[in-house]
Amino acid sequence: MANNKDAFRDYLELEKKYSPHTVNAYLNDICFFESFNKNQFHQENIDQANYSQIRTWIVSLVDDGISNVSVNRKMQSLKAYYKFLLKTKQIEVSPLLKHKALKTSSTLQIPFSEKEVVDVLNQMQNPVGFEEIRNKLIIDLFYTAGIRRAELIHLKIGNVNVLGNTIKVLGKRNKERIIPLLPIVSGQLILYFNERTRLETVTYNDFFFLTKKGLKLNESFVYRLINTYFSTVSEKIKRSPHMLRHTFATHLLNNGADLNSVKELLGHSSLASTQIYTHSSLSELKKVYEEAHPRNQK
């Protein structure tokens, strides 16, 4: 089993080109099932587990209050593992062959309004010192470039082109893309970098965004930053970096951007991923439609 997990990691990293975060999530899920299976069925090796055992794990997860979305994600990890065992001819049939995902409620995520974003940026209009300047730049980058949290955290100094008003980020499956920046954001990049050079200690020289102690940012830090600033202007439940990315896409579509262009900016591999943002634009389209269509004129 240990050798299989190492080989599976190589398969995810080298062949599927998944990000380190995704690879670790898959392996953690497999380890959790392995532990459950050992305790529940006294079976050391999950390679020969059957669907009844997996179903028992699913029931246990649900009983523990794990959401259907999270359970489905764990099943995706197991599916990938058994698919790998099939591919390497270590099993003949996947125990998850006939598994159906648990039902989930499709809740529409509501992006920040233009006013909410402007209100936050107005609060930060004249940032002073390293942290305030960095925080304003982070919020502006999420909103004007639509980058992912991991892309911001791993942005390298060498991939910031101030003169060309672009940044190069490493997205999912190690796909690089170049994102244009507004001139006002490029000005903030220079301001931040000047402050960054004054830090007494820098442990991670290659990374563009750092803490005041010169360390690389982490996911929790970035989440708290966005949540803290937007909690002052918004009562929405989700106030996360992803919600700012969602807001970026929705506001572009609301203001006439075509879906293909937004897809490229977001770094999506297919239009299907981008189309989820059109739902938020429908309210705007409906308003224009009702105001403009002759049949609705009074």
Rank of each mutant, 00 (worst) to 15 (best):
N4C: 12
K5E: 09
F8T: 01
K17Y: 07
Y18T: 00
H21F: 15
T22V: 03
V23N: 00
V23C: 01
V23Q: 02
A25M: 10
S35T: 12
S35H: 06
S35E: 13
F36H: 14
F36T: 13
K38P: 07
N39L: 07
N39E: 12
Q40K: 15
F41E: 06
F41Y: 11
N45M: 04
Y51A: 00
Y51C: 00
I54P: 00
R55G: 03
T56E: 13
I58S: 02
V59E: 07
V59P: 04
D63K: 08
G65W: 03
K74F: 02
M75G: 00
A80R: 01
Y81L: 12
Y81D: 04
E92V: 09
L96C: 06
K98D: 14
K100N: 08
A101W: 12
L102E: 05
T107E: 13
T107W: 11
T107Q: 12
I110N: 09
F112Y: 02
E116I: 03
E116H: 00
L121G: 00
L121A: 00
Q123G: 10
G129P: 11
F130K: 07
I133N: 01
I133K: 08
K136L: 04
K136F: 05
I139F: 12
I139N: 02
D140V: 12
I153T: 07
I153K: 05
H154D: 05
L155A: 09
L155C: 10
K156S: 05
V160E: 01
N161A: 08
V162G: 01
L163E: 10
L163I: 14
V169Q: 03
G171C: 08
K172T: 06
R173I: 01
I178P: 01
P180E: 11
P180R: 14
P180C: 15
V185A: 09
S186F: 02
G187M: 04
L191K: 08
T197S: 05
L199H: 09
L199G: 07
T201K: 11
T201V: 13
D206M: 04
D206L: 08
L210G: 06
T211I: 07
K213H: 02
K216I: 13
K216Y: 01
L217Y: 01
N218Y: 09
E219P: 00
S220Q: 03
R224I: 07
F230A: 07
S231R: 07
T232Y: 02
T232D: 02
V233A: 00
V233C: 00
S234A: 05
K238W: 06
M243R: 09
H246P: 05
H246F: 08
T247L: 14
T247W: 09
A249K: 10
T250Q: 03
H251W: 09
H251I: 10
N255H: 15
L259T: 02
N260A: 11
N260M: 08
S261C: 01
L265W: 11
G267T: 09
H268W: 10
S269K: 06
S269C: 08
S270K: 12
A272W: 04
S273K: 13
S273A: 13
L282V: 11
S283F: 15
S283H: 15
S283C: 14
E284I: 15
E290H: 11
A292I: 07
N296P: 05
N296T: 15
K298V: 11
